[in-house]
Design a protein around this nucleic acid. Structure first.
Lengths: 207, 207, 207, 207
DNA sequence: GCCTAATCGAGACGGTACGTCGAGTCTTGTC
DNA sequence: GACAAGACTCGACGTACCGTCTCGATTAGGC
């Protein structure tokens, strides 16, 4: 088979006209991130971005149909980079702690609070946008599933643990603390919370 | 002391002009709740409320400076009524379960999802609005503190439990499941989650 | 006859409740005149008057149904006082000049420009308001009629003069110069204009 | 010199974005003229125009900053078209009569009364708007100046006539009769008034 | 080396909602 | 009853963004 054909078969269609300027994406996202971090989701407007970047509005609309989509890309995009890898960690406690750390780091990026809350608020009825978030969770949820299975095999985790409920507890407490509550993040928050979770998993002290 | 004087001392200041029509508040809140539940926070506009209730916009602005304030009143108001009382419950497990049930019932009211997310998104910089939510939590947080103290005294709860972290976990998992995640609420969600939490509190299995 | 009875016979019905405070009229008109002179007709609002005089809006509405009525009272009221009396003047030229002087003095009062134009603009369809102005003219128009008749009898004025057209010319030129045109008022305007008018009245130079 | 170059030298700057729709101007002015003629200046609102033409408010504001500006355009615009030409007339009397006729025709257009009075009332402090009217006068004032000079050269007009005062008299009497007074316009008004003015210009009957 | 096509900036367009101002009316408690 | 205070309905104000459109000007293949 013609190897060239294989490429052409999924042909990165090489559009005819002038190609999109990749610089535009970066500049728009940069301005949007700044607006989100500094003034919140309501202040995020295509108008303002166009104004301050000198990029035309239609150019932005060509890429993101809605400011919710733009915020969603900021909220979910490039989030996995540089995060502590979970599965690499040794030991149950360390792995649970890594999940906490990963979540805390992810939601702690500048503008994330505004972006996440804004997207969720404005895309109440847009299933695709919510999926974008849920897909992010899915990876972690899968890792957690593996961790629990291995832990149960090793006798470190009690039977009857519902992974989804457990995941709610982990994600929920991080998000609640970081985005909804006013309480400050203590320095050892990740450790304390992880420890509490690990304890809830311990098998009953029978014999 | 003259009891009458006590009353006059705080003399129902009786404002001068025409008194506010309490009917207005009810009608506006009703319309707002409907809009929130049916079309989400973005569709909540003073314009629409004025239109459909026949109440003038200035009249609404006189009461709530922002749609976030209106949504906040809907989200936090009249929420404690009819909720299962926590302290009345007997036994640690029942009390924890009651907290879960209370939270689930509170956040499950129609329009709550839109109201809470919307307020949080748009009032990023308004401390007063966030306080309104936090004050609601405070009561429950206090009850939880009492429960933990009593449980520790009775030897049912391990030392070294951080009540705030525990509260995050409870509130967080409920809110996460109900407002952020797409996952459905299983029928026994409250029971399962409460059980998991209770287990995390158990004293170490000493031998 | 009892003089007291005469008074009671036409009893100034002596309204039942608290009598109107005459001070209110003066304060409102004062404030209105100031607003008209300083900021023009559009800035004249019952709201502003109420604000700055401390008088309630309903109290003002009880006296003037519309800001046009208030402005009309300012424009037409107390205008005849202190004006040079026309009929007292001797000689045709002096009498015509007196009419010009009277008009110039009348329309020259502070705020008059704003008041007159405003009333005329906003009361396009209110015949009563326009009558208020026309009634003012009527007196002068009558005097002019007498002057012309006498002048014709004395052979000083040609036959076939239409008094209304003449009146238009006199009033019109004063008003046009003072209210519509931007041209400055020369010092001897009244004299020059009066002389021009007098000349137009002269009988034809026969043989 | 190349005539084509002269055109290109002032190159119709060709604004960048989407060009303005000239249809918009026509529709707005049409609606405004109707409102002025039917309900007067106070009823002229951008809101109403937007409503009935289906044109957005911002689009209207982009062209006229104020309803006074819109009314001024209506009052002064396209007024010279189809008016009887003055200088073409032969004879002093005919020329004076032509000026009267022109003014009467100009101020007699539908909506003019409301437009002129409204603009003058609301733009008391806007010099630019008043200039717009004065510039209109300037042409006529110039023609009148020429007429007087020629008349004086021909011995038909007395020396010492002040053209501005004369202009006031002509414009003033027309405007007064048509816009301020309630008196009806007699059929021969223009003739009568013109004759009266001509007479006032006649040289003294010397013998 | 033109032609075609998609991009880019700019900015006008029809809309919706904003938050404010003033017009008039009504309802209190005080004088 | 008149008065101040002030809330009420209503309508218009002038502005901000929305998302779409129409321009002229680039910037690339493709023939």
């Amino acid at each position: 088979m013609n190897p060239r054909a294989a490429v052409l078969a999924f042909p990165a269609p090489r559009a005819r006209g002038r190609p999109r300027d990749p610089e535009v994406d970066a500049r728009v996202i940069g301005a949007a991130r700044r607006l989100l971090a500094e003034k919140g989701y309501e202040a995020l407007s295509f108008e303002a971005i166009a104004q301050e970047t000198g990029i035309g509005k239609p150019t932005i609309y060509r890429r993101w149909p809605t400011k919710a989509h733009l915020a969603a890309e900021i909220a979910t995009g490039d989030g996995a980079e540089g995060l502590p890898d979970i599965v690499v960690q040794e030991g149950l406690a360390a792995q649970i702690r890594a999940i906490f750390a990963q979540a805390a780091s992810f939601y702690g990026r500048p503008g994330m609070k505004a972006a996440v809350l804004g997207v969720l608020a404005s895309a109440q009825s847009d299933a695709a946008l919510r999926d974008q978030f849920n897909r992010l969770e899915e990876a972690t949820r899968g890792e957690l599933r593996t961790i629990v299975a291995k832990g149960q095999a090793a006798g470190l985790i009690r039977d009857g643990i519902d992974v989804d409920t457990l995941f709610d507890m982990i994600s929920g407490s991080v998000i609640f603390r970081m985005m909804l509550s006013e309480a400050p993040m203590p320095r050892d928050y990740v450790d304390a919370a992880a420890a509490q979770i690990v304890r809830s998993l311990a098998p009953a002290a029978t014999e």
